[in-house]
């Protein structure tokens, strides 16, 4: 006969966050910041695939999903770029070096960087959408000879809102990577492109029929970008987008992130456009 109250051995993982210490905080733009994290105890690395996300927990405040934006081959530290948009991210921004965050993850599907071998790669980012795409770009650049042409198209709100400025300058100077940046609204003495990011597609150097495109940004931006790429000749099965919905568990159990038949947390966040195009054009799904 089993006793009524003993202790349970069934672990609550992956429902429990693990403590991670902030090694460095970097302010990217007025409302965006990057955290560099390491496990609070031990030296275990953090392995993930480009496009995956973690649940980030601020002690006692709450937990939210945030994509991982570091180099997938540099597992020593975990990098998250976040924008301050709500209670949890506000609390997160107040954190300093040596403070501790909770991490659960990595969760979700990834950008098809392995499947895209030998193809031209077009990454299209809008706003903070550059952060979830950065690991894909790292991977492609780490294995540059596996790919054809590589193009990054990036649309920001204003020149002040451009993420990863230093790195963009480095990327721009590379001969084997074409970077185009545009802003919706020119301010200061911005001398670059002005116009919506879709305007960059027609003059970007890639061969549409042999291209894998990865898009991340607001839903409207992704929809129009996908259409523009398809208009140029990219197959809709080769266009990938990263979706965002409310998430509480990150592991397919809480039901919040449902998008038609899909759970964004486990079937996504990365989907092929062909798979979800029918949903993208419906209201309030």
């Amino acid at each position: 006969m089993e006793p009524l109250h003993s202790t349970s051995q069934v672990p609550m993982l992956p429902m429990q966050p693990e403590p991670y210490r902030i090694e460095r905080v970097h302010k990217d733009t007025g409302d965006t910041f990057t955290l560099e994290l390491k496990p609070a105890a031990g030296n275990a690395g953090f392995a993930f695939k480009p496009g995956q996300f973690n649940m980030l927990y601020v002690f006692g405040v709450g937990e939210i999903p945030i994509s991982i934006s570091g180099d997938p081959e540099d597992t020593a530290s975990l990098i998250h770029t976040t924008r301050e948009v709500g209670t949890v991210t506000r609390a997160m921004r107040a954190l300093k070096q040596a403070d501790v965050l909770g991490i659960r993850g990595p969760f979700g599907s990834s950008w098809p960087v392995l499947e895209a071998k030998d193809q031209d790669i077009v990454l299209v980012a809008g706003g903070i959408g550059l952060a979830p795409l950065r690991p894909a770009l790292y991977h492609v650049m780490n294995h540059r000879s596996d790919y054809g042409k590589v193009v990054l198209l990036y649309g920001a709100r204003t020149p002040e809102d451009i993420l990863y400025k230093k790195e963009l300058a480095q990327w721009r100077s590379k001969f084997d990577l074409d970077v185009f940046v545009t802003v919706d609204r020119a301010t200061g003495n911005w001398q670059g492109n002005v116009g919506f990011v879709t305007q960059l597609i027609k003059r970007a150097p890639f061969e549409a029929r042999n291209t894998t495109a990865m898009i991340c940004g607001p839903e409207v931006m992704m929809r129009f970008t996908a259409q523009e790429l398809i208009k140029r000749g990219v197959a809709k099965e080769q266009v990938f987008v990263s979706m965002e919905r409310n998430m509480k568990c990150g592991i397919g159990l809480c039901g919040h992130c449902q998008y038609g038949p899909h759970f964004i947390c486990k079937d996504g966040p990365v989907f092929s456009y062909a798979e979800i195009a029918w949903l993208l054009n419906l209201w309030e799904v």
């Binding site: 109250h5 202790t7 349970s8 429990q16 105890a41 501790v100 909770g102």
Partner: peptide, 19 residues
């Protein structure tokens, strides 16, 4: 689901739970 205590390492969640 869990209770956490503040510790020197940030926080800790006891692994044992009531069955």
């Amino acid at each position: 689901l869990w209770q956490a205590k503040r510790t020197e390492d940030g926080f800790a969640i006891p692994k044992e739970r009531e069955s």
